[in-house]
Amino acid sequence: MGNCVGATWLPLEDDGVHDPLAPGVRLLQQPAEALGRLTPDSAGNYVRWVEALDKGEIKPREALRSKAAPRFRDDDILLNLKGGMPIVRFPHRAHTLWLDCSNCHDHLFKAVAGANKLSMFAILQGEQCGVCHGAVSFPLTECTRCHSVARSAVNGKPAQAAQGGALVPAAK
C-alpha cells in the first residue's frame, strides 16, 4: 500500500468492491497481471500511462467506427502565471493522445490561453482538471507534476522555459 514504486495490486476478490461470491470474479483479469508489466508509477494505478503508450507497452484503440482522423496537438500552455506555486505546464500532447478536443472544449475550458479562470478549490471538487485528475488520471496528491515550471526559470519570458513543443503563455 501507499506511495512506493512497485506497489502491488489487490486481487479483485479482496478489493472491497467485488463480491468474492460473484461467480464472474474468478474469470476476470487481475490488475496485477495486466498492470505489473507496464512502466511503474508511485500513485493512482501505479502505471505511467502516457509513458506506457509512448513505449508501445499498450496499444489502445483510437476509435471503434469513427473514420475521422484523430486530432492531436502538441503545444504546451503555461498557467498560473501570477500564483505562488510553480507555474503549471499543461501539455496538450499527453492529453490528446487519450482524449478528443471535445472532451474538454468548450464546456470545461475555453480554447483560448488565459481565458479560463482555474481554481484548485474547483479542481478538488471534481470540476475543471478535477473531472479526471483525482478520479482516473494521476491524483491531486501529485502537485509538482502540474506545477512543474519554476518561476525563476521563466523570468517573465515563458517561451524560453519550454522543454520541447511550443509554449503558449496564458495572458492573465
Binding site: G16, H18, G44
Partner: peptide, 29 residues
C-alpha cells in the same frame, strides 16, 4: 448475456468512483 462478468459488485455498494489516493475531493464523483 454474460451477466455475471459485469455484475460482480458487493451488494449494497452505492454508485460512485472508488480507489485510493483520494484527496478529500472530488466531491461530485
Amino acid at each position: 448475456e454474460r451477466c455475471d462478468l459485469c455484475h460482480t459488485g458487493k451488494p449494497g455498494l452505492p454508485s460512485g468512483i472508488y480507489g485510493g489516493h483520494e484527496t478529500g475531493g472530488p466531491g461530485r464523483w
